[in-house]
Design a protein around this nucleic acid. Structure first.
Length: 415
DNA sequence: TCTGGGGTCCTAGGACCC
DNA sequence: TCTGGGGTCCTAGGACCC
């Protein structure tokens, strides 16, 4: 049996932990640059605020109902996520961290009543961390997802243990709410008269394979109680790593864009080092505002191949800037830039280049020192000169909450 | 004025090989 | 009337997830 644990309205709930005034009132958290609504409290949902909606379009409603609005505070959310995951490990040795706010647990060998076990998990996470969660328990991961959805409508825990419960749960799950059925498949399936998960399991395997590939086939089996998707307890190294951001305001000066691109490149390099990988391809892209009515949308990108795979700030930033120079067109107002690294392999097995080789040892010692200093004294304590100090490309974060758990200066004071 | 930022997997089709 | 039969690798695009 698997449990799917999912935090309720995760980002909003993180804000509430240290700010009890936010309880029982509408709260939303915005995407980077304070653009869209990406997390909503139940009260905000009830007001009709939608996921992904640009906040400026709902300004009136937000003011009228005094909705509390926050910028994304990923330092806080990441730390709370860690605490939740670590606590979950007390309940099973096999935990798959599926996303920042979700985890699958393997419950094999748990002899207790599973619903009671789920309730215990919920109580513990609430008490120790202050995070409300839902727990779905079922024989497969896809069914655990479905159980979790039902749990959230009840008091937070639901287990599918018998076949009758399974059929009931499937009949009460709209097809578009199945894990693995997105917008396109939902349209296709409805056209074929499929409206619930139960209907889906009654489709012929042949049809499903033809229209929804082998993944659809797997899904059908999972919903019928046959486990096809294993728990992945060890984190696989990423095959692509990206750092991309919209600018705080539109930019046309290449010097400023260079600052952002080189910062994104060093951020990719740091992510590579963290998973002990190196990358051979560095892709840079820039584009103008796709919503602009006064300027035509321009999007440019280029992929630079390094002579040798690397995870050095210097190497990646240099390649990214070289790429930027090739795609940059003057006199345009740019809105966003990003760096993506790919062709990723382990740093222990770099294919050397006979003709053009880096002094890897030297670069690595620099990385070690800068990583240490930045971990010890704070992000960007040491950085490349080209990353600059101008703030124009930096995110707009006007409603940022304190980093309650990761900065001494932000520690709460109790009087 | 103001519209996020990450990821993965699968398949079809083209290029190429013998 | 007749037109071989296998393979592999790569990429673009489409689907999905949070």
């Amino acid at each position: 049996m698997y449990a799917l644990v999912d935090c309720n309205n995760f980002y909003v709930s993180c804000e509430r932990i240290f700010n009890p005034r936010l309880e029982s009132v509408p709260v939303v958290v915005l995407s980077n640059n304070d653009g869209c609504i990406i997390s909503r409290s139940n009260e905000a949902k009830a007001l009709g605020l939608k996921m992904g909606e640009p906040v400026f379009k709902r300004k009136e409603l937000i003011e009228q109902h005094k909705v509390k609005v926050f910028s994304s505070n990923y330092a806080l959310y990441g730390d709370i996520s860690h605490r939740v995951m670590n606590t979950l490990r007390d309940f099973s040795p096999f935990v798959e961290i599926y996303s920042i706010d979700e985890a699958f647990l393997d419950l094999q060998g748990i002899n207790a009543d599973l619903t009671a076990y789920g309730e215990n998990i919920k109580k513990t996470i609430q008490k120790n961390i202050g995070m409300p969660i839902g727990v779905g328990i079922a024989p497969t991961k896809s069914l655990a997802k479905i159980a979790n959805r039902i749990a959230k409508k009840r008091n937070g825990v639901f287990a599918i243990e018998s076949d009758n419960q399974r059929l009931w749960a499937l009949a009460n799950t709209p097809v578009e709410d199945i894990w693995g059925v997105g917008r396109r498949y939902a349209v296709l399936l409805k056209k074929h008269g499929v409206s619930t998960a139960l209907d889906f399991t009654n489709l012929s395997t042949d049809w499903i394979r033809r229209h929804m590939t082998v993944q659809g086939h797997r899904l059908k089996e999972e919903l019928q109680g046959k486990s096809c998707i294993d728990l992945e307890t060890v984190m696989q190294p990423k095959k692509n790593i990206a750092t991309t951001r919209a600018f705080g305001k539109k930019l046309s000066d290449i010097e400023q864009i260079k600052e952002s691109v080189s910062s994104h490149a060093t951020s990719c390099a740091a992510k590579l080092r963290r998973q002990k990988s190196v990358a051979r391809f560095v892709t840079v892209f820039i584009h103008t505002d796709p919503f602009s009515e006064t300027q035509k949308y321009v999007s440019r990108s280029i992929t630079v191949t390094l002579p040798e795979a690397s995870n050095s700030d210097f190497v990646l930033a240099k390649a990214a800037i070289a790429g930027l120079h090739k795609i940059f067109i003057p006199n345009l107002l740019y809105k966003k830039a990003g760096v993506i690294v790919s062709e990723i392999g382990p740093e222990s097995a770099i294919q050397r280049n006979l003709f053009e080789s880096y002094d890897t040892e030297r670069l690595n010692s620099v990385s070690q020192v800068t990583d240490y200093l930045n971990a010890r004294y704070g992000k960007s304590t040491v950085k490349l000169a080209v990353q600059g100090g101008s703030r124009d490309w930096k995110l707009k974060q006007e409603k940022l909450s304190p980093n309650y758990t990761t900065r001494w200066e932000d520690l709460m004071e109790v009087f």
